[in-house]
């Protein structure tokens, strides 16, 4: 028996919008810790890891660990039927091949339930090692989104370099080159508007912009984004989900032949 009641149902809607274009099918794992997902894109270049902690739900009942295979496009279709202010409850029964999403309007005058077929997914769970990152950049998520979008109109890949000067995003394409440097800036009105650069040592890595642009679909989930870089490791692009957990995207770098 599984019953998870999320008052801020819009969070789940946003999570689906952020993941459905990257991953087609995924297993959602439910345990005492929370509701989580780990999945790679079809080419195994990117990985998404989601955690919504049990404490973030108004009601969280999960009698035993359960893994539910879902087609994210179909799940998104169903969640789009929920209002932005709706409370969403996810219900499942042991051994059942369906999951139910229940939507309640804030004043309880409309209650809907959508039953979705589950699927068997053979997914490999990867062990993500704890890593010391050479540099961690925290910046407004809208700024990161803007940079990725702007650079992808010039080139296909971006070189992200962190030095004492700041973080530099560079690209080149047929029409020319582009460099955007963001310096640390803590003198802002709100903490989420700050750009904070923690650097242990300089680092420079190359990534496909197509994937980074896909990650920025998570921008509505958080005002700020954290980009963690280490040489020859996948970059981690993390959006914190207020009071609940996170969505992390890992992207394998492009490596010189």
């Amino acid at each position: 028996m599984l019953e998870l009641r999320l008052v801020q149902g819009s969070l789940l809607k946003k999570v689906l919008e952020a993941t459905k274009d990257l991953v087609t099918d995924a297993n959602f794992d439910c345990s005492a810790t929370g509701f989580s997902l780990q999945a790679m894109d079809s080419s195994h270049v990117a990985l998404v890891a989601l955690l919504l902690r049990s404490e973030g739900f108004e009601h969280y009942r999960c009698d035993r660990n359960i893994s539910m295979g879902m087609n994210l496009n179909n799940m998104s279709k169903m969640l789009k039927c929920a209002g932005n202010d709706d409370i969403i409850t996810i219900k499942g029964d042991d051994g059942s091949d369906t999951v139910t999403f229940m939507f309640e309007s804030p004043n309880q005058d409309k209650i809907s339930d959508f039953e979705m077929k589950l699927m068997d997914i053979d997914s490999e769970h990867l062990g993500i090692p704890e890593a010391e990152y050479h540099a961690i950049v925290k910046m407004p998520s809208s700024e990161f989104q803007r940079i990725c979008k702007d650079l992808s109109s010039i080139g296909d890949t971006v070189v992200i370099s962190v030095t004492k000067e700041g973080v530099k995003f560079s690209t080149r394409g047929d029409i020319g080159t582009a460099n955007i440097v963001c310096r640390q800036n803590k003198t802002v009105d709100k903490p989420e508007e700050a750009t904070i650069i923690e650097m242990n040592e300089p680092v420079s890595l190359t990534f496909a912009l197509r994937y980074l642009n896909s990650f920025t679909k998570a921008t509505p989930l958080s005002e700020s984004v954290t980009v963690s870089l280490s040489s020859e490791l996948p970059v981690v692009v993390e959006y914190k989900i207020a009071d609940m957990g996170y969505i992390r995207f890992y992207l394998a770098p492009k490596i010189e032949d």
């Binding site: 790679m40 195994h44 270049v45 490999e124 769970h125 996948p234 770098p253 492009k254 490596i255 010189e256």
Partner: peptide, 14 residues
């Protein structure tokens, strides 16, 4: 030129 690496090159199967 540069080559796209994969996640599985870095993270082992659980």
């Amino acid at each position: 030129g540069s080559k796209q690496s994969t996640i599985t090159k870095f993270f082992g199967k659980f």
